[in-house]
């Protein structure tokens, strides 16, 4: 039995130790916003925050997350400035990868509140978007990055993970 925190709630799972976190989140706890894409950590659709850092949940066995803080797209409570920017810039097309894109971008801004264009490209290139919404993803991130640091840090997941909010 593995105990961890999911979006701020302490939970336990009886899933086999090698089960990727993705399936536990989706099928055991019913949070379907995190998506299955490639299964080999190369598309980013399954990105969640593990103690504040973006990880690919499709390749992370739950044995590795004991007592960790896990945050999914649902855990942003529809309040993250990136989510607003995603709507303003009309980023999603099919939308399937966008939970992962937002979680990845949130991880970027939490540690680098005003990234350069090159830093955005480098950080976001692990996330595939088959609809190729890259130009809008980049614009939306730049838009939020241009806002004051405090706006971005409202949802600094690292701080959340440390119990400081």
């Amino acid at each position: 039995m593995i105990e961890f925190s999911l979006n701020g709630k302490k939970i336990t799972s009886d899933a086999e130790a090698d089960t990727p976190l993705l399936w536990v989140i989706r099928d055991e706890f019913g949070l379907k916003g995190t998506k299955f894409g490639c299964g080999i950590a190369m598309c980013g659709a399954c990105t969640v925050h593990f103690n504040g850092s973006p990880v690919r949940s499709c390749s992370l066995p739950i044995s590795a997350i004991a007592n960790a803080e896990i945050r999914t797209i649902e855990g942003l409570d529809n309040q993250h400035p990136l989510q607003k920017a995603w709507v303003e810039h009309q980023v999603p097309q099919c939308g399937y990868c966008q939970s992962g894109q937002i979680m990845q971008a949130a991880g970027l801004l939490a540690t680098n509140a005003d990234p350069s264009e090159e830093e955005i490209e480098a950080y976001m290139s692990g996330n595939l978007c088959r609809c190729m919404t890259y130009a809008r993803i980049k614009e939306a991130i730049q838009d939020v990055a241009g806002q004051s640091e405090s706006v971005v840090q409202i949802y600094n997941p690292k701080r959340d993970a440390q119990g400081v909010s």
Partner: peptide, 21 residues
């Protein structure tokens, strides 16, 4: 105009075939 399907695609609530139980 803003597309009506977009908000649900930014917060994990949009339901795809793979999400059916």
């Amino acid at each position: 105009s803003q597309a009506l399907d977009i908000p649900a695609k930014t917060n994990g609530t949009a339901q795809y075939g793979i999400d059916i139980e």
